[in-house]
């Protein structure tokens, strides 16, 4: 009896069909109707609108949570960009910390306002991190990853030992943002610029080269492309994204200190990418928007918080190994139905 039941199940399979929309067929980019336009715009516009509304309507505590979530989403995007270009980083804290300290130093010692420190720390952080990692661009996979893991920890110890930039005390009393709302909207704007801008880059032929390096760097070299130049450029983009996040946090907390090089800033982007789904930039950002608020919600649970958090992480990665974003995208773009196999 049991055997018959299973054989019955095997005769059915799930069929997946792409939703019919003209714009999906490679070349034709003519939108035929409002429905089609909406079909494309909705998944992009919805999160933007939702985040704006949340930011305006949420209680003040959750507004703060949203800001730090957005910052982690930026770090997750930075991680995914580097990983998509063949550089798996274990040290997003490096980008974050360098950006944070640059902003702090410029504000504390030179008295520059956030309007100047933010762009300067973003660009400067990108340049510094790229130069720091330039000697190891030839390393691949785990070897590159190990180096990125060690660098932020090393810088942390150097600051502690040499007592530069306030040493263990850090730099406090930095200039805050003019208005809390201005703060919220600045992070949001940065998130959308990074997300949509970098996604556009990855979809271009330039992005193809980066993906090619991730897939098979020797084949890219044999195509007369200097992979180290492309890797350095991708690294700069990723580092600048992370450095902005750090610089922003410096002014948001009005403080910068050694914790900006902490392991949290390296681990959470990776966890976000694992939950959200790799290789799309949007996936890891979505992952951050799941994990950071989740961690806040569990805060009331005291000691067991980390355990429950870990269990939920396992549930996510085992239940949806492809990532939440890939799952949602599949559901959105394809019909699914059960069909009989064979006769």
């Amino acid at each position: 009896m049991a055997a018959q039941d299973t054989s019955k199940q095997v005769t059915r399979r799930r069929e997946r069909l792409d939703r019919g929309i003209k714009v999906r067929s490679e070349d034709i980019y003519a939108l035929n109707s409002w429905r089609e336009a909406l079909y494309l715009l909705a998944p992009r516009a919805l999160p933007v609108v939702a985040l704006v509304l949340l930011q305006l309507l949420a209680p003040e505590y959750w507004q703060r949570v949203l800001i730090s979530t957005t910052v982690f989403a930026l770090l997750a995007i930075s991680w995914d960009l580097a990983a998509s270009s063949g550089m798996v980083c274990l040290g997003q804290a490096l980008f974050f910390g360098v950006g944070a300290y640059l902003a702090g130093i410029m504000n504390h010692y030179l008295g520059l306002p956030p309007g100047l420190t933010l762009p300067l720390a973003t660009l400067g952080g990108g340049v510094i991190c790229t130069v720091l990692l330039l000697p190891v661009l030839r390393l691949r996979g785990i070897y590159f990853a190990m180096f990125t893991l060690i660098l932020p920890l090393m810088i942390e110890r150097i600051i502690e030992a040499t007592k530069v930039f306030g040493g263990t005390e850090g730099l406090s009393g930095l200039t805050p943002f003019a208005h809390p709302l201005w703060e919220s909207f600045l992070t949001m704007a940065a998130l959308w610029v990074a997300l949509f801008g970098l996604r556009r880059i990855m979809a271009s032929d330039y992005g193809l080269v980066l993906k090619g390096i991730n897939d098979n760097d020797r084949a890219v070299m044999s195509a007369a492309l200097n992979i180290y130049r492309y890797k350095a450029q991708a690294l700069f983009l990723a580092a600048a994204t992370g450095a902005f996040a750090g610089a922003f946090m410096t002014h948001s907390y009005r403080f910068v200190g050694m914790p900006v090089f902490a392991l949290d800033y390296s681990i959470l982007p990776i966890a976000s990418a694992a939950v959200g789904g790799l290789g799309t930039l949007a996936g890891p950002a979505l992952g951050a928007f799941i994990l950071v608020p989740l961690s806040e919600m569990l805060r009331g649970l005291g000691g067991l918080r980390i355990v429950i958090y870990a269990v939920l992480l396992v549930v996510f990665t085992v239940g949806l190994p492809e990532g939440v974003f890939h799952y949602l995208r599949r559901k959105y773009t394809q019909f699914e139905r059960w069909t009989e196999v064979g006769k």
């Binding site: 032929d205 330039y206 193809l208 993906k211 090619g212 098979n216």
Partner: peptide, 26 residues
């Protein structure tokens, strides 16, 4: 230019985009 004995395509990319990568070269 060379081919590899053990083929080295860009597995994630559509077939013709594999060639586009090479066409991107200076």
């Amino acid at each position: 230019a060379r081919t590899f004995q053990m083929v080295k395509p860009f597995y994630q990319l559509p077939a013709f985009k594999n060639v586009v990568v090479a066409l991107f070269s200076p």
